[in-house]
């Protein structure tokens, strides 16, 4: 039973049904959160790789990545720091497209990034049309502070799973905690189940 906060009340009379529990609408704002400085990798040095439990490494240069079949998505996103943002528009490549033809025994992936950030996900959370590697936000190239040149987009999980400055995926049969997961954040992070921290 929650403690009632004397004199506290909601500001909006109707709660938006798109808001998961404990979240609020950030409106036009797009807050930036990251643990370290924004990395700057030139596109000539950039690549994206699939490694680990795969039948051979896959690697795409920037040009090769840009030539892959693209999708445009409009989704709601939810940050564990409590803000949500509706109808965000992205373009990029479905993770399904990257995994097409890959034979693997893996059940998990670790997304790894410039700057050393990692996050872990069940493979099932990034396949079947549920995740993208995006390079465009709201019609513009993805800004470095928002994860450019590319970030992962997994809108059905808290946004720390949508790793910025993505450089690839390591597939594995085992679940290994990523950066924030090591510090006590939830292994999966479903906003509708309010899985913010370990044990939630």
């Amino acid at each position: 039973m929650s403690l009632i906060s004397r004199g506290f009340g909601r500001r909006e009379q109707r709660r938006d049904e798109r808001l998961p529990p404990g979240q609020y609408d950030a409106g036009d704002l797009f807050p930036v959160l990251s643990a370290g400085p924004t990395p700057r990798t030139s596109l000539s040095e950039w690549d994206l790789t699939l490694q680990g439990e795969v039948d051979g490494l896959r690697r795409w240069t920037w040009e090769e990545f840009r030539d892959l079949p693209r999708e445009a998505v409009s989704v709601d996103i939810h940050c564990v720091t409590k803000w949500s943002k509706f109808d965000t528009r992205w373009e990029g490549v479905a993770v399904d497209t990257l995994l097409a033809g890959v034979r693997t025994e893996a059940s998990y992936v670790v997304a790894f990034c410039d700057g050393g950030y990692t996050t872990n996900l069940p493979l099932a959370d990034v396949t079947d049309g549920r995740a993208w590697v995006v390079d465009t936000y709201d019609g513009q190239p993805l800004a470095p502070e928002h994860g450019g040149p590319v970030r992962l987009l997994v809108p059905h999980l808290y946004f720390w799973k949508s790793a910025k400055w993505l450089r690839g995926f390591a597939l594995s049969r085992f679940d290994e905690p990523g950066f924030w997961e090591t510090f006590g954040y939830h292994e999966r992070g479903d906003p509708w189940l309010e899985q913010r921290y370990s044990g939630d």
């Binding site: 929650s2 403690l3 009632i4 906060s5 506290f8 009340g9 909601r10 709660r15 529990p21 404990g22 609020y24 409590k82």
Partner: peptide, 11 residues
């Protein structure tokens, strides 16, 4: 976490 009388919460 704040909770209103109608059950609404904010964190």
């Amino acid at each position: 976490r704040l909770t209103a009388e109608d059950g609404y919460t904010a964190q």
